[in-house]
Design a protein around this nucleic acid. Structure first.
Lengths: 144, 144
DNA sequence: CGCTTTGGTTGTATAGTACAACTGGATAGA
DNA sequence: TCTATCCAGTTGTACTATACAACCAAAGCG
């Protein structure tokens, strides 16, 4: 059993290496939706609509970055804005049908890729890995 | 116990969310070394020197990207090139003392951040999380 | 020796991103 | 109620990371 410090170093190194490859891997896997577009759309689907500010906070992005990304996704017809009647400043973002369609398609290819990569993992390990990731990200969310 | 498909979806979602935040998190944590610079230097340290081509392959980057990154790191005095006497085409890259120093310092702040984030994990969970990440990345390395 | 492969650089174009300045709506304290 | 402040979002600007293609030089092979 490795020591705490070794495990920490491994976790740090492997998570970082993964992050470094993720953008390129996404570009290969689904050229029609970049990693950032994919995550924004997925969040919109998950939350059933949200504000640009929420996206920026969740993904540690500047609001101007989100503004431009959303503008691009709107031009593509993937999202639409609905001004919140209770607060005229707020634009609640929603997936359009087209957005849902392209997101579902991309999510499907990602799922296949992950299934392949994790094909020889047994169910218990998968469940435990998933719970570790949830726990890890939950702690990041409260701090950052 | 969740089903296999649920675990896969969670893993996919959480890894992706992590990747999306990693760049910004790195920029906040250590402004003096971007995520990509950090990973390249760390790989150099790990491997005790390697070729630009190896870096490109490992991180799914174009060789021109690596070429420019290395040129920048060389200007900063963090890496040096030593032409391989057995093959005049090859430039073996090495950390300089300055590169080692800055990398160690950045690695230390990262280690602290990860320690904090994982403070309430017990040793067994850490070890298991680390081994899962190793296993996951190993499978990615053979394919991509 | 010429052809192909390999490692690397440079030209060029684009996407992603941040920061600062701004606009317009909301809100709270005088 | 007026004004100062805050909040959501956009736009101007600049820079970094990145890819792709064209290129160069050395190596290896027939």
């Amino acid at each position: 059993m490795p020591h705490r410090a070794d495990s920490l170093d491994t976790i740090q190194r492997e998570l970082t290496a993964f992050a470094r490859r993720a953008r390129a891997a996404a570009a290969q896997l689904h050229p029609e939706l970049s990693l950032v577009s994919y995550t924004l759309l997925a969040h919109l689907q998950d939350q059933r609509g949200c504000r640009a500010t929420d996206l920026a906070a969740h993904y540690l992005l500047d609001k101007s970055t989100v503004s431009r990304q959303i503008a691009a996704l709107e031009r593509l017809g993937f999202v639409e804005r609905r001004t919140d009647p209770d607060d005229q400043r707020v634009q609640v973002l929603h997936l359009t049908d087209r957005g849902t369609a392209v997101l579902d398609q991309v999510a499907a290819s990602r799922r296949i890729a992950f299934e392949e990569r994790l094909a020889d993992w047994d169910e218990d390990d998968l469940a435990r890995f998933a719970s570790y990731l949830l726990r890890y990200n939950a702690s990041a969310a409260t701090r950052d």
